[in-house]
């Protein structure tokens, strides 16, 4: 029975922030589930609770109500086996690129030659080889974000959480990153939870796109993207791609966010 359960199961989850300045009902209730290896894209108006959902899912924030299970285990506290990438690359200026990538291993006391090689290979796959001993501030925004993706993937997490990782990048770099991430993700076979405010990006990278409403965020649509992977950038001009982006855009138009 357990084997047929979904990889991640979210049931009626809600999150309310209680702060000195007031109570914010940020999220839900929402319910959904997804399978191992899937890439789930999340789009929704800004401030609707996407980041909150990611943090609750990864166990970084407590939920106010509801149940979350990952591999049939209840989530209470940070998950053991995840990589997270935020919009800001959050690289540590006092460490070299390689030392930044090695941080998760170092925190678990697991730095050895094997993990160093893994770090170098990841950097190479992401196109940042040759910069291992540079300081983060010597790299451009796009390269920094690749380093932070390498850091997130270092310990082969079973889940990768990406929170608008490319929002600060220019359009061309962003396209390039989309292609790189798709390749890497297929290679690493990591279940991915991917937040973006770009509809095209969500559809391009995801097996499934979840559309969220205004705050408190709820699911207003859940779309399978059947286009086979790997996809090329020009797939964005194909009719089946455009059908999906249009469908999402219509939701936003109705909600008055676009």
């Amino acid at each position: 029975m357990l084997d047929t359960a979904s990889f991640v199961d979210v049931k009626s989850v809600e999150k309310t922030y209680f702060t000195p300045s007031g109570v914010v009902h940020a999220l839900g209730p929402i319910s959904f589930s997804f399978d191992r290896g899937q890439t789930v894209g999340i789009v929704g108006p800004s401030g609707c609770g996407k980041s909150t959902m990611l943090k609750v899912l990864a166990g970084l924030e407590d939920r106010t109500r509801g149940e979350i299970t990952v591999q049939s285990r209840n989530v209470n506290g940070p998950l053991d086996d995840v990589g997270v990438v935020f919009q800001k690359d959050l690289l540590l200026d006092w460490r070299t690129v390689l030392e930044n990538v090695l941080l998760p291993a170092e925190l678990r006391g697991r730095v050895d030659e094997k993990i160093r090689t893994r770090a170098r290979n990841l950097l190479e796959e992401l196109g940042v080889s040759g910069f291992e001993n540079n300081q983060p501030w010597e790299l451009s925004g796009g390269m920094r974000q690749r380093v932070s993706i390498a850091r997130a993937l270092l310990l082969k997490p079973s889940m990768l959480f990406l929170d608008e990782p490319f929002s600060a990048l220019d359009a061309l770099t962003r396209d390039k990153m989309n292609v790189i991430v798709q390749r890497l993700q297929m290679h690493e076979e990591v279940t991915t939870f991917f937040i973006t405010h770009s509809i095209a990006e969500a559809v391009f990278l995801s097996d499934r796109v979840i559309v969220m409403s205004d705050r408190p965020g709820r699911i207003i649509d859940d779309i399978e993207v059947g286009i086979p992977k790997p996809r090329t950038l020009s797939v964005r001009e194909e009719p089946e791609f455009i059908d999906i982006t249009r469908r999402i855009r219509i939701h936003f138009e109705k909600a008055g966010v676009l």
């Binding site: 990864a58 970084l60 940070p78 997270v84 935020f86 800001k88 678990r108």
Partner: peptide, 14 residues
């Protein structure tokens, strides 16, 4: 320290 950075290392189980 940025809150997001602290959450990031929390996710690394620091």
């Amino acid at each position: 320290a940025e809150p997001d950075l602290l959450q990031l290392v929390k996710s690394m189980r620091a």
